[in-house]
């Protein structure tokens, strides 16, 4: 019982640590959106293409954050380490 509790607790901590990966995409997307705003401010007629390029770039930048999120999901809801207790 105690072993199970320790494994569950550590899985939750690991999930929390995995979500630190969210910092990177946050900063990166912030930069991208800021630069897109600058570009639109300079050339308002390019608004459409700048916005769609920015969204695409944001989606690609988001990938690492998504990987972190999936690791956190697996740790929280699939509990892969519970089976390792003999």
């Amino acid at each position: 019982m105690l072993e199970k509790a320790i494994v569950l607790g550590c899985s939750a901590i690991g999930a929390g640590l995995a979500m630190i990966a969210g910092i990177g995409p946050g900063i990166g997307e912030g930069y991208a959106v800021g630069k897109a705003c600058e570009a639109i401010g300079r050339q308002p007629e390019c608004k459409g293409s700048v916005t769609s390029t920015m969204l695409l770039g944001c989606a690609v930048a988001e990938t690492t954050g998504i990987y972190g999120f999936i690791v956190a999901l697996i740790l929280l809801f699939v509990n892969p380490f519970i089976g390792k207790i003999s």
């Binding site: 989606a59 988001e62 990938t63 998504i66 990987y67 999120f69 999936i70 999901l73």
Partner: peptide, 16 residues
């Protein structure tokens, strides 16, 4: 892999 995970992660994170 990254295409699939990106789409899945965004929708699943919304659900969660």
């Amino acid at each position: 892999v990254s295409m699939a995970f990106r789409h899945f992660g965004n929708i699943a994170s919304g659900t969660v």
